[in-house]
Design a protein around this nucleic acid. Sequence first.
DNA 1: TTGTATGCGTTATCAT
DNA 2: ATGATAACGCATACAA
Lengths: 331, 331
Amino acid sequence: MTINEIAKLAGVSRATISRYLNDGYVSQDKRDKIKQIIEETGYTPSSYAQTLRSKKTNYIGVIIPKIDSDSIGRMVSGITSVLSKKNYQILLASTNNNASEELKYLRLFKENHVDGIILLGTIFTKEHIKTLASYQVPIVILGQNVKGYSCIYSDDYHAALSLGRKLSKTSTNPAMITVTSEDVAVGLNRRKGFIDAFKENGKTIHKKNIKEVAFSFDAAYEACKELISNDKTIDAIMCATDTIAAGAIKYLRETKLKVPEDIEVTGFGDSKLSLVSYPSITTVHFFYEDAGIKAASLVLDKINKKEKTSPNLGIQLEYNLVERESTKKLD
Amino acid sequence: MTINEIAKLAGVSRATISRYLNDGYVSQDKRDKIKQIIEETGYTPSSYAQTLRSKKTNYIGVIIPKIDSDSIGRMVSGITSVLSKKNYQILLASTNNNASEELKYLRLFKENHVDGIILLGTIFTKEHIKTLASYQVPIVILGQNVKGYSCIYSDDYHAALSLGRKLSKTSTNPAMITVTSEDVAVGLNRRKGFIDAFKENGKTIHKKNIKEVAFSFDAAYEACKELISNDKTIDAIMCATDTIAAGAIKYLRETKLKVPEDIEVTGFGDSKLSLVSYPSITTVHFFYEDAGIKAASLVLDKINKKEKTSPNLGIQLEYNLVERESTKKLD
DNA sequence: TTGTATGCGTTATCAT
DNA sequence: ATGATAACGCATACAA
């Protein structure tokens, strides 16, 4: 079914059909006739031909490091809710934590002429910046604060700071299980927050008590084992994510160490895990779904007023401290 | 940058460029020249124009009920891993558990001329079947067994049966928290398996001890409260998902009922939740990522040998019983 | 091996 | 208000 066949059936020119579909500048009787024909045939215009002419795809490219993650799932959920309402399609690309894949998809999106891109990244190399700079389509970065770009990010530093302040009141020999500092948001900023919080109270986190692991439950379990084996006096473990905290707690439970009586543990992200875990995990709530919503809205805004000069604003999201059972209550 | 400009720069006709990009029927010297020009300019062909001509989009439409779910995340993860390797793009549509949205996206995919569709559905209405029947592109259904279609599904009935058999040895007054039977895989089949297992041992699950809830932690918590309030002698609760089991356990813990000593609990799906929960949850492992991989491979197979008559095969996946702390150990 | 010409399904410009 | 007609960027049959 093409516009030509519809035109023939309706006894008008294809230009009229096109007008019916777009401007609407068509007489009532032709309009009725066309409507009927279209309904009968179930005709839908070819979006590819439309794109070829109008340069508008209604695609938004979304790049994520992996899909089976609580926080990412919630962000994508926010993105889809906004975009589907506005009749945009999502082109999803998952890199499986492989930074070079990110660049590949960035290029692929270029070929597909997406109207906009949402990049949910972890590590930003110079090459990233270079590739991004060569783009003309609106880009929003989610979860990291990269200067020169529109970003939606959470206040990881202060969130970690407030978590750290709480622990610093009770802990004298704290430890930390974190991720690579190349991940500025999760690795670097949270780490800094923890360290500074203890510094405020004149306490320090020993270098040897800081373990760097992958984003995984099992890796955290092993890291916790190493920490405890090396130093039995550790009385608090700050973890860069809830998953890591859950892995640590699993090990502690197995060795009969009591949480929080013997060791306090904190997570990050307020995932379902942190609620279900026993003891439930003290953590920080980030409004991930809201972040996804904001990112999608922002990218649509940029598309619509397509001034390339539209300011690249950064939006920092709120956070809430969520106190649960894995830390000691202070009167 | 279009093929015409490249042709001009390279001093050849655009047909030669096209051949360079496709068949490769080009002399060595022109080939070198073209290669150089393309690299200099960073030209990439318009996939829309290509599609308009060749009718091949390299898009696979993926419809899911929601993205922030452990099992779905794992399936999508499997899908992306296969598709990205084969240079297919994923058009992702999330329905937020709204069946009518599914039909909308099915139509949208038609407009976008996806090469294939993977439908990760929950409830199949007559309308679904009707809409699907009008499609010419390969479709693979993931997670449900719908006759007449290629499906990748897990053996929910027998998995529930083996879970039920285990419980039926120790429990005399079992209960169940499940979801709507309209969801054949999760609601109906698992329910049947549980019931039949007890029947084998001459025991029955009382109707009043069967609660139907949404796929949510909180709903499960409430349902468990109702069950226990109505009948203090319940000694086992079979749950249709791990999330539901986790919600139930949370309530039980709050009321000081011991799991598994006072009440045994089972989940379904072997999500991270089931491992992290305390007590950890006896459940069934499904190879979700593998299912995603199989679905993606199958849809690609169908696309390549595009005989419409390709048989619609159903692939039933294996499962493993995973015994953890939420059920009693038998000698 | 290469170029010419045509068409894919639209939209937009121009007459009428 | 409507209809020719050209153009979007590409692939391919055909001719050379």
